[in-house]
Structure formats: structure tokens, C-alpha cells
Amino acid sequence: MKYNHKHMNKDAERWADDALNSLDGMSRATANPFLYTKIVARIEANAGGWENAARLISRPAFALASLAIFLVINIAVIVKGQQKAENELAQKLNSEQMLASEFMNTQNYQLVEIND
């Protein structure tokens, strides 16, 4: 039994060696002789359509340009928002001033009435 086990291990080692050496003296596999024609056809097919769009989108330049546009839009919105807030404040102050001056006019009118 012990001998059989040892014998089998030797066989397995020899077999593994043979398999590992089975690539010795191998030659290169050759490509299809029409490979170039097929490649050109694929390049031409890729020249239009979605593949181009996908390639464009995946470019770092596209990502940078998108980021720049995003930042410009954000800055524009913030600036416009600030301007609007300033205008509203100015309008509010203006209307308060008008109300105050109207109140003063009313007071004056009442005074005139008492004097009469």
C-alpha cells in the first residue's frame, strides 16, 4: 500500500513534468490572412455613430470641459442671486422710506386741521 502510494506520487510528478515540458519546441500560431481587412472594416464601422460619442465622452478633455461649464453656470447663478437679493433689499428700503414720508405727510395734515 505504502509502495503503491509512493509509486503513484512518482508517476504524478513525472506526468506533471511531461505536461510542463509539452510546450517545448512549439511554434507560433498564425493569424487569419484576412485579419487586416477585418480590422479596417471594424475601424470604418467605428468611425460613426455611438462609438464616437462614447469615445468623446470618455476623454479627459470632455470631462474637464463639462466641469468648467458646470462651474460657470454655478457662479452665474450665485452672482445673479446676489444681485437679485441686493435689488430686493434696495426696493424694500425704498418702499419703507416712501411709507415713512407718507406718514410724515399725514401727521402734518392732521396738525393743519387742528390749527383750523
Binding site: A19, N21, S22, L23, M26, S27, A29
Partner: peptide, 15 residues
């Protein structure tokens, strides 16, 4: 693999 020498083809399958 088409480039393996014929007498070693069977062994190369396992590899």
C-alpha cells in the same frame, strides 16, 4: 494550441 508539436498535444491539453 496549433503550434504544439503533435506528439505533445495531448499533454499540453492538461497544461
Amino acid at each position: 494550441h496549433p503550434g504544439v508539436v503533435s506528439e505533445k498535444k495531448q499533454m499540453s491539453v492538461a497544461l
